[in-house]
Amino acid sequence: MRIKFFVQVFLLGPLVFFAVPALSSFGATPRDNYAFYCVQCHGAEGRGDGPNATESQPVDPRNHRSAYEMKKLTDEEIIDVIRNGGAATSKSTLMPAFRRTLSDKEIEGLKGYLRELCKC
């Protein structure tokens, strides 16, 4: 019992202490993450009109304000497409995979944020 406590405090404590701030996105809200990673394609308000949505691109980024479009996706599909990219839902690979960039928790948070944007 006492040994277990010792292990938790003295070994795991510092591990958490050092590992957490190492993530540069530490403390970022879903809104912050959206602004940093998604706005460049999906636009400042999520309407699919970010600076990367140029005329030369073959596919427009999804309009995240469109309940009509976003209702087609289940929560699981939204999480899957953010984790694994457009290919995961048979869409364009222009939608990148973020599983190496964002934690599962952050992706879950973004799913909630997208549901707020589309009100759906």
Binding site: Q40, C41, G50, P51, N52, T54, S56, Q57
Partner: peptide, 8 residues
């Protein structure tokens, strides 16, 4: 000869 792609 033409530019294509995103800007970020």
């Amino acid at each position: 000869g033409n530019k294509a792609g995103g800007l970020s």
